[in-house]
Design a protein around this nucleic acid. Structure first.
Lengths: 131, 131
DNA sequence: CTGTCTGTACTATAGTCCTAGTACACCGAG
DNA sequence: CTCGGTGTACTAGGACTATAGTACAGACAG
């Protein structure tokens, strides 16, 4: 079962965090076409948020063509996104985890690691955009 | 001169993006004690946002003890954060850039890379928290 | 059909974010 | 002192986010 997670510190609206997690699950292959998402009421109960907030996220996903509701049954994934090949994913994930272990061993905490990663990704994207 | 960057798509409030970037600069050594931040009006003009938004960010930084205003002169960094040693930083940054190149070569775009990195970091943090 | 589950729609309220515009206090240079 | 630059304070309004509560339509099992 797909499970959502929230980060209250991030400042990102709750409904957007839900949308992003589904989108991420699709990109990485955690979610595939036909998978059922947890119901609005389940998510609301699990995360202690208002059902309307979950409904808004699901509505956004529907509008984006990533999910389709079936009355009485739930909301289902309609996977039509470029997925990362499993082999590539496993290889890259392994490499990244190795780097992460190195960073931990070097004494960096989660905040410092996130800062370093964010800065590097931003630079990378900025260079690509400027090119 | 320290320069700010905004990502309108992220959903993160503007003033928080500014605060995070200064905090990140401190953690990584881009900013050190005594450095002058761009003035409220400079940032507002460069990013085309309201000066009040920049002022709110600087006020937050002051409250956090990371910056101190000097009337008529500007806002200055008061670096009292655990910094990553330069050698460690360079080594880790180099490793991460190498991984990033591998990911690009594998055909992943920026969104897919971000999704993979975010998922990996979240898992890492969740495991640490559960331990 | 009945009951229960599903997503959806609606109103109303509170809080936050961002903007606009104006005004003030402090500092340094001339 | 005067001037220009700095951060700061204040009011007002619009947009967005999230909440509470209620109600409705569709699908399925009994």
């Amino acid at each position: 079962m797909f499970a959502f997670r929230l980060d209250a510190r991030s400042g990102v609206p709750t409904y957007l965090q839900l949308v992003d997690q589904v989108r991420r699950g699709l990109l990485l292959g955690y979610l595939v076409d036909g998978d059922r998402l947890p119901t609005v009421r389940e998510v609301a109960a699990a995360l202690v948020i208002n059902p309307n907030t979950v409904a808004k996220a699901y509505r956004d996903l529907e509008r984006a063509g990533l999910a389709a509701p079936r009355a009485g049954q739930g909301t289902f994934v309609v996977g039509s996104v470029d997925q990362v090949p499993a082999a590539t994913y496993v290889k890259l994930s392994h490499g990244l985890r190795g780097w992460l272990r190195t960073a931990h061993d070097a004494g960096l905490d989660h905040d410092q690691i996130r800062a370093l990663v964010t800065a590097t990704l931003d630079d990378d994207q900025a260079q690509a955009g400027a090119a």
